[in-house]
Nucleic acid binder design. Structure first.
Length: 417
RNA sequence: GGGGGAAUGUCCCGAGCGGCAAAGGGGGCGGACUGUAAAUCCGCUGCGUAAGCUUCGCAGGUUCGAGUCCUGCUUCCCCCA
């Protein structure tokens, strides 16, 4: 495993980050000789990144940890076009305002992982809109278009699959590849950036960038991708009850984030600890070897470590404590998600189904009733099978709240105000 | 420009004689079993307390009645030019 000379590639390799690399040996030599600069691009398609982006963020994290300079490329320009890679249909185009606001939401996450600044290995954040939007059409075509052949572009899986499935690909989307390649070349010229990383689906796009950079700048350039991540049972990573596992606290609370990792399948514990935490390898090897129920301890440590990286030490501790009280001691913690409901409404008595819908546990009264019928709704730990039953102030417990649970893991405290 | 085909349950795939709230999957959620795991088994998966209401690309029409037939439109695919 430890066949590399550079710390950077050794860490990536033993932790399982490497799927493909354009020239691992040469990159290794370069990285062992001194700090290198690498980047990853993020398009602003949502207001927060999610767990699916985490592997790539960790890549930047380790790049910096091992003494190199990471660049976070915000895709302000490329988002205007939309990445067609491995998508069946074109995404709706976002307005400039949406893109800007999404970028603002995304930026903050990186502060938890990287140290930004002007030093040699300090992280940098740039926006490709700064150079991409400035090009004139003909200028762009003459400068870069001449280096790409349609023949070649059509052979990339990302494009080929779309065509094979007889789905349309617009000329706009077709150009995404070029823009991403231009990014790499631009960063190489400006910051001497020699490495682009990304998920395995980005391989084609990355290779284009590597080639364009070599050709136009006559400099070494490398690409490296991470494996496509699925859970041991084959599900795609990053989905949970409420939707995606967002990294921003306002999109998904640290408690829910902690829970996501706590619920990891046994078979994934080791893999996830390698990829999503900075726990030392010795520790990981010890933890993943735990058998049976003991592996739950490992899952807690995984959840702690993963949450700490994103939300900080304090939030991780609180989440852990809250979960421990709720699941292991059966005690309520005031830190559980709490929703305030007008006291008058409870005084009058509110239908359980209406209540769960109001506090966001269910989407409609009908859904709530069906859930209740199946035994999936609990008020103060008692299953209520009739969704029409009224919830009133009489249901307040000693702490002055009503504990409403959907299933075993989604718990909300209702507080009268 | 000509010809042929496609669009189905606000997650996806996908059946659908003129009587359909619409087969079957997948996914998701809930229950049982467990260890807040996996596997397995069971249930639910348009809205409404209900009467009922609203769904099959869009707009009209035929019919007691249309996802299903007719007309126009939109979008997409394929073939010919």
């Amino acid at each position: 495993m430890t066949s590399f000379k550079s710390d950077f590639l050794n860490v990536l390799s033993e932790r399982g980050f490497i799927h493909q690399c354009t020239d691992a040996e040469a990159l290794d030599t370069l990285a062992s000789a001194g700090p290198i600069t690498g980047y990853i691009g993020y398009d602003a398609t949502a207001s927060s990144l999610h767990a699916g982006h985490l592997v790539q963020i960790m890549l930047l994290y380790w790049l910096q940890k091992t003494g190199n300079k990471p660049i976070v490329l915000m895709g302000g320009g490329t988002t205007k076009v939309g990445d067609p890679t491995f998508k069946d249909t074109q995404r709706p185009l976002l307005t400039d305002e949406q893109i800007q606001s999404n970028m603002n939401g995304i930026k903050s996450v990186f502060n938890s992982f990287l140290t930004f600044g002007d030093g040699a290995t300090d992280a940098l954040m740039v926006n490709n809109d700064d150079w991409l939007s400035g090009f004139g059409y003909i200028e762009f075509l003459r400068t870069f278009g001449t280096h790409f052949t349609i023949n070649r572009m059509l052979t990339f899986d990302s494009v080929k699959l779309r065509l094979e499935r007889e789905q349309p690909m617009t000329f706009l989307e077709f150009n995404y590849m070029l823009m991403q390649a231009v990014d790499f070349r631009e960063l190489n010229s400006t910051y001497n950036c020699v490495l682009q990383m990304g998920g395995s689906d980005q391989w084609g796009n990355i290779v284009n960038g590597v080639e364009l950079t070599r050709r136009l700048n006559q400099k070494a350039a490398f690409g490296l991708t991470t494996p496509l991540l699925t859970t041991a049972s084959g599900a795609k990573m990053g989905k949970t009850v409420g939707g995606a596992v967002w990294l921003n606290a306002d999109a998904l609370s640290p408690y829910d984030y902690w829970q996501y990792w706590r619920n990891t399948e046994d078979a994934d514990v080791g893999k996830f600890m390698r990829l999503f935490t900075d726990l030392p390898m010795d520790e990981i090897r010890r933890l993943e070897a735990l058998q049976g129920a003991e592996i739950n301890e490992a899952k807690k440590i995984l959840a702690d470590a993963a949450t700490r990286l994103v939300h900080g030490e304090a939030a991780a501790a609180t989440a852990r404590d809250t979960a421990q009280k709720a699941f292991e001691q059966g005690v309520l913690s005031a830190d559980l998600p709490t929703v305030e409901v007008a006291r008058a409404e409870l005084e009058a008595g509110i239908m359980l189904a209406a209540l769960t819908t109001k506090i966001g546990l269910t989407q409609s009264n009908g859904e709530a009733r069906r859930l209740a019928q199946g035994g999936g709704l609990r008020v103060n730990d008692t299953a209520i099978t009739d969704g029409n039953q009224a919830v009133t102030l009489a249901d307040l417990n000693a702490d002055g709240v009503i504990k409403v649970a959907q299933g075993k893991k989604k718990i909300v405290l209702v507080k009268p105000v």
